[in-house]
Design a protein around this nucleic acid. Structure first.
Length: 583
RNA sequence: GCUGGCGUAGCUCAACUGGUAGAGCAGCUGAUUUGUAAUCAGCAGGUCAUGGGUUCAAAUCCCUUCGCCAGCUCCA
């Protein structure tokens, strides 16, 4: 059965309404249990709802049970949910009387003259609505977790207590949701990474620093080889650059100004400060600047699997998906302004090609436009944004515009992939940069014999190999397609008498580059099959007397769990066909 | 970094209100030579994350540090 990712339930307005109302019931329960608590905001979200409370004592997991119990009573009490409209002054007075200072703050900021209040029993909340007709309409819900959250999402503000929950119209839907949550946990890349012996993070080495075990490293090698081949095919050249550079370089690039919090402290080498690189771009620019460039040479498409190190706060580290040391599949394209639209379009097509090759069909695409603070001219922003938008439109992909969310140096396209729990992680990115060409004074000699400034595009297709691998593990639940599987075939013997023939088959496949393991242990086949199955190996070949007699192999597919007997040549050609198709 | 939860054998987990650590799997040894998801037996394996404190006595209570999980913030 195909795994369903958590989808955006917000499209379902009915559910959204229900969840929003459930949040109100939760707030009502909290106010009854802990009257000193102040209410703030409590919306429906993609996967449920939450409500933020201001209360000195944090909610304990046991408190959730109490709150949930009381919520059920409020549902039973079946209060009608009544909307009333007040002018702002009345509303202010109303909440001020209750000492609800957060609501007061919210009301002052509402632009309309009238605000709406929803009342159910003794509880009233400032709210735009809509809501269910009565608390009795709320049937199936569950409180899931508590967490801290800053008032208005600003870390300088007070930290509030947030309670998350989920609600559905039926018990069945709720049960299914909770089951799905359990299923999703099973495909967590951190769990699978351990079970399949792919990678680990070692406390003594440091948080956010990945150790790739042989099987994980093998998958990475396959990804990298594919990446290199496709880059050469697509007109890229590949570079290598060092891991550290003099602090002076990072002054020129201005990273020491605007990226300092993410950079590690300098190390002293013979009296000069050096810093570990958080980015590859300055190195590529230095290669560009190593000699005079002509307009005829452009565009340059320079790619590197460049390993960078960035300081990340401890609380944000997450398996392979958010780390401190990672390898970007980075590239910088230096082109003339007339080449910009085509280069962006090519980069976008290349991105989609790569993602599809790995089986990713669903992603979120964002176009981020000019922020308040920016460098470069209005018209170059305009031009670059048009080029990005043009490429997106041409590709026919659905995307969202993140107005004003671009970086100060240029507009960008980001592609995010969701993990098994529906959290989105940015992988691919295509960014136009008006800053670095200026900072490093890069130029080419134009047709007119005069120097011109080229446009620089940063792009990463997978983003980082670590994050991409993490997404890949979750996407396939560890069951990699044959072309990526670290072990493609495991040969299982039934008794020791079959080892010799099994070895012959193994050699035969290995000669053709197939990744084979031979399990000739003195164990029952059932046991060996079970192990191969839990190791998520795509093919098992079972060798016994029958196979030796008929000079065949019994093929058991990971997915199908039934065996088919065939000639080893046939098996190899089928296997190779599958590998080439990347299915 | 912040809020809350957590850290026991390689892995998954147990040990009532404090009485001095136990199981399954994995590993090793032996027996078994097996036909489609776990053959049997034995052995070995732990500074209970770390450092300190309280106590006659601490895995258990308190504090420190490190790490992990969820969320917040951040994410060129």
């Amino acid at each position: 059965m195909p795994f369903r990712y958590f989808n955006n339930d917000m499209t379902n307005n009915k559910l959204e309404k229900l969840r929003h109302s459930t949040a109100h019931v939760m707030a009502q329960a909290v106010k009854r249990l802990y009257p000193e608590t102040l209410v703030t905001i409590g919306p429906a979200i993609e996967n449920g709802f939450y409500y933020d409370f201001d209360r000195e004592e944090p909610f304990k997991p046991e408190d959730l049970q109490k709150i949930e119990k009381l919520m059920h009573e409020i549902v039973k009490e079946n209060f009608p949910v009544v909307r009333s409209e007040l002018n702002k002054e009345e509303a202010l007075k109303f909440f001020e009387g209750k000492g609800e200072k957060y609501k007061k703050e919210l009301i002052t900021e509402i632009e309309d003259e009238e605000v709406s209040i929803y009342t159910q029993g003794e509880f009233a909340d400032l709210c735009r609505g809509p809501h269910v007709g009565s608390t009795g309409d709320i049937k199936s819900f569950k409180l899931l977790s508590v967490a801290g959250s800053y008032w208005r999402g600003d870390e300088n503000n007070k930290m509030l207590q947030r309670i998350y929950g989920i609600a559905f119209y039926s018990r069945k839907d709720l049960g299914e949701y909770l089951d799905r949550l359990e299923e999703a946990k099973k495909r967590d890349h951190r769990k699978l990474g351990k079970e399949l012996d792919l990678f680990h993070v070692d406390e003594e080495i440091g948080s956010g620093l990945i150790l790739w075990h042989p099987k994980g490293a093998l998958v990475r090698t396959i990804i990298e080889d594919f990446w290199r081949k496709e880059h050469y095919k697509n007109g890229y050249q590949i570079l290598y650059s060092p891991h550290i550079a003099r602090a002076h370089l990072w002054e020129t690039s201005e990273h020491l100004n605007f990226y300092k919090e993410n950079m590690y402290s300098p190390m002293d080498i013979d009296g000069t400060d050096y810093i570990v690189k958080p980015m590859n771009c300055p190195f590529h620019i230095k290669i560009y600047n190593s000699r005079l460039r002509s307009y005829r040479e452009l565009p340059f498409r320079w790619a590197e699997l460049g390993t960078v190190y960035r300081y990340e706060k401890t609380g944000v580290l997450h398996g392979l998906l958010r780390v401190r040391g990672f390898t970007q599949d980075d590239a910088h394209i230096f082109c003339r302004s007339d080449q910009l639209p085509e280069e962006i379009s090519k980069a976008l097509d290349f991105t989609i090609f790569i993602l599809r090759s790995f089986g990713f069909e669903e992603y979120q695409i964002y176009l981020s436009t000019k922020p308040d603070k920016f460098v470069g001219s209005e018209e170059s922003w305009e031009k670059a944004t048009t080029a990005l938008k043009g490429a997106l439109d041409k590709s026919g992909m659905a995307y969202e515009i993140d107005a004003g969310e671009g970086v100060f140096y240029g507009p960008k396209i980001d592609v995010k992939i969701k993990d098994s729990l529906g959290r989105a992680w940015q992988c691919s990115t295509i960014q136009v940069d008006f800053n670095l060409p200026e900072r490093f004074k890069i130029s080419y000699i134009g047709e007119d014999g005069q120097p011109h400034q080229p446009i620089m595009i940063h792009r990463a297709l997978m983003g980082s190999l670590e994050r991409f691998f993490g997404c890949l593990i979750e996407h396939f639940a560890g069951a990699f397609p044959t072309w990526l599987a670290p072990v493609q075939v495991r040969i299982l013997t039934i008794t020791d008498n079959h080892i010799k023939y099994a070895e012959e088959i193994s050699e035969f496949l290995k000669k053709d580059g197939i990744r084979v393991e031979l399990d000739s242990r003195n164990e029952k086949v059932g046991f060996k099959i079970r192990e191969a199955q839990t190791s998520k190996i795509p093919y098992m070949l079972i060798i016994g007397d029958k196979e030796i007699k008929d000079k065949e192999v019994a093929v058991r597919k990971r997915k199908e769990k039934k065996t088919e007997t065939m000639d080893s040549e046939d098996f190899l050609s089928k296997l190779n066909k599958e590998i080439i198709s990347k299915k």
